[in-house]
């Protein structure tokens, strides 16, 4: 479980920074304003919003790599501030940059991350075997990441995020740039995490993925939450027959939730 309460974050920007004027306060850019939502174990939460809305900042705050200016993050895992190392052990994070070392093979990457999370040699071997099967990594497990296609890299990156069997899984746009087959494998992996009782948060621009996987969604617009609820509630709230249309209404009118 994770409970996010009135989370706010602002960044200092230089004069040249290309940021919207309505979110500027002197030299400060208001990235997030009082975002709140919660996710239960075994639940998949989708983070929606236009580019620059604040999705990645939200996920980075939840990863602990950024510190919030105000608001709280509560989990049943470990305290994000006072026991940050314990919290990180329970967190699997996939960022847009993949986080893989290009000159190492997929196996070497997975081994390094697993050992860093404190897994013993035998556990490392078992986890790699399991993820290889789940994400179909066997064909390129011993190839250097630099030699892999975008789809292969993404699957390897997901394996990297899950190698220590985390309870809280955060994916930032995991299917961007992937073909249909690779996308299906990634979505299937997210489904497996849900079935295993883990809490999954993922940012996406694809409404079909949201429809397929998400129990609830959080829509962020210009740093503010404009909707939090199930897909059915979202459609009903905006009187729309598709999630795309509902999202468009939400972003145009600022929403309410």
């Amino acid at each position: 479980m994770i409970k996010v309460h009135r989370l706010s974050k602002r960044f200092r920007v230089d004069k040249k920074a290309n940021v919207p004027a309505n979110r500027l306060d002197g030299k400060w850019f208001q990235a997030l304003s009082e975002i709140s939502f919660e996710a239960q174990a075994g639940e998949v939460i989708g983070l929606l919003g236009a580019n620059g809305a604040g999705k990645t900042t939200t996920l980075r705050l939840l990863s602990g790599i950024l510190k919030a200016d105000s608001g709280t993050v509560e989990t049943d895992l470990a305290a994000i501030d006072s026991d940050s190392q314990g919290y990180r052990r329970q967190l699997g994070f996939l960022s847009g940059s993949k986080g893989l070392y290009e000159r190492l093979t997929v196996r070497e990457n997975l081994t390094f991350f697993a050992r860093s999370y404190g897994l013993a040699a035998e556990q490392v071997r078992q986890q790699i075997e399991l993820l290889t099967e789940q994400l179909k990594l066997e064909q390129f497990l011993d190839r250097k990441v630099a030699e892999l296609s975008t789809g292969m890299r993404q699957r390897a990156a997901i394996a990297r995020a899950l190698v220590h069997d985390p309870q809280l899984v955060i994916f930032d746009e995991p299917t961007t740039g992937l073909d249909i087959v690779a996308t299906e494998q990634v979505l299937s992996c997210i489904e497996q995490q849900k079935e295993a009782g883990k809490t999954v948060l993922f940012a996406t621009h694809h409404m079909d993925e949201v429809q397929l996987l998400c129990d609830r969604i959080v829509v962020i617009h210009e740093g503010r939450r404009c909707f939090f609820g199930s897909c059915a509630e979202f459609l009903e709230h905006f009187q729309a027959d598709s999630l795309n249309l509902a999202l468009r209404h939400c972003l145009q009118h600022g929403g309410a939730a």
Partner: peptide
């Protein structure tokens, strides 16, 4: 630049 530092800082290391 490659974004791997972000991943590294999420490891349970100080």
């Amino acid at each position: 630049e490659r974004g791997t530092l972000e991943t590294l800082l999420m490891l349970p290391l100080t």
